[in-house]
């Protein structure tokens, strides 16, 4: 999916950068990590333990735990529930907790 921000006259404030596996991603203050990634067209949050298949944002309300990633070294962080922050280091998660 190639998501994007809706332009309806909303002032989102000053954009900043964070990093997905080293790649710079733009976010605005208050956006969740998952949303900023979706807006950037990066939808794979993790790869699963058994089948090694990609998963991403699904329920969007903290229930399903499919969007967990490694955030600043901490694994299993629900990115739909966590705000992006300047220079945050986000990594695609493999299995139950390693960065890939």
């Amino acid at each position: 999916m190639t998501g994007r921000r809706v332009d309806d006259g909303l002032d989102r404030g000053q954009p900043f950068q964070f990093f997905l596996d080293g790649e710079a991603i733009v976010a605005y203050p208050g956006e969740s990590i998952a949303a900023a990634l979706v807006a950037h067209g990066r939808n794979v949050a993790r790869r699963t333990t058994r089948a090694d298949v990609p998963r991403g944002y699904f329920c969007g309300m903290g229930v399903c735990w499919d969007c967990v990633m490694v955030v600043n070294g901490t694994p299993n962080v629900r990115t739909c529930r966590t705000e992006a922050a300047p220079n945050m280091k986000v990594q695609t998660q493999r299995g139950v907790g390693e960065a890939s």
Partner: peptide, 19 residues
């Protein structure tokens, strides 16, 4: 990835003003 729930879509729209 790319298959999301209706609630998830609403939250992107309402909570982040994104599609």
């Amino acid at each position: 990835p790319g298959v999301i729930t209706a609630g998830g879509a609403q939250n992107l729209l309402k909570g982040n003003r994104m599609v």
